[in-house]
Amino acid sequence: MSRIGRSSAAIGWLAAVTLSTAATADEIVQIAFIGDDSGDAYQGASMGLDEINRAGGFLGFEFALTAVADHEQIDDDAIAVLVTVDGASAGDVAGAFPQLAVFNTGSDDDALRALCRDNLFSIMPSASMRSDAIAQWQQQADDEDISAVAHHHRFRRYSSGDLNGRYVEAFDEPMTESAWTAFVAVRMVGDGVTRTTSREPDALIEHLWGLESFDASKGQPLSFRENGQLRQPLWIVQGDDVLGESPVEGVVDPDDLDTLGGVSCSK
């Protein structure tokens, strides 16, 4: 990311840090992105790419992100694909590319989770997660016009403020929920590849199903439900104000993330 280069140049190097292993072209881990390559989701994915390349650089891995118009243009050697809200149906893509890790970063349709595809991972919270979060909140407060979101730029706890700061630095605008979900998907690919030391999609898929403590600046270790939905707390917002967190303490166990939304598979 430019901010890193800029600050380094401004301060001057004490010592050149030689990073090993410049990956050759066929070793670069390819991530496909279906959707608008000028929107917030692409920005979030790009920031995720910068971050996994920074971490990967210390360990000898390099990643690339390629935006494609539709899933027929996905490269053969891609390891994962992000499907954003303005892209095709994530369920169709997962069906067409059963060998790839497919991330739904845009849709909150519960029917997509109920498909329970082996290679489909939803980062965006489902509609039922949002409605449960709101219902829990309203058991304690009579706030109107509230919504439940995966991410909000005014939320500052758990290093979420630092994350927003990096995004604002790079794009000069606050990080949206769509930017956040795309960012998290790319970070998961990077985390999976560096931890498994494998560039193969099946190793990544296995890693994702076994996740126990993914860190997405939400203060909780995150993992996937059997329906491929990311377990996560949501933030209750009203207008531009963050009112609190859900699961709501006092209503349910605040650590029980499965109090939000559909958990299991319908089949």
């Binding site: 890193i4 301060i11 001057g12 190097w13 004490l14 971050e51 920074r54 210390f58 290093s159 630092d162």
Partner: peptide, 11 residues
């Protein structure tokens, strides 16, 4: 004085 920075991982 700042003497210089050493690149490390995020945060």
């Amino acid at each position: 004085e700042l003497k210089g920075g050493i690149d490390v991982g995020l945060e």
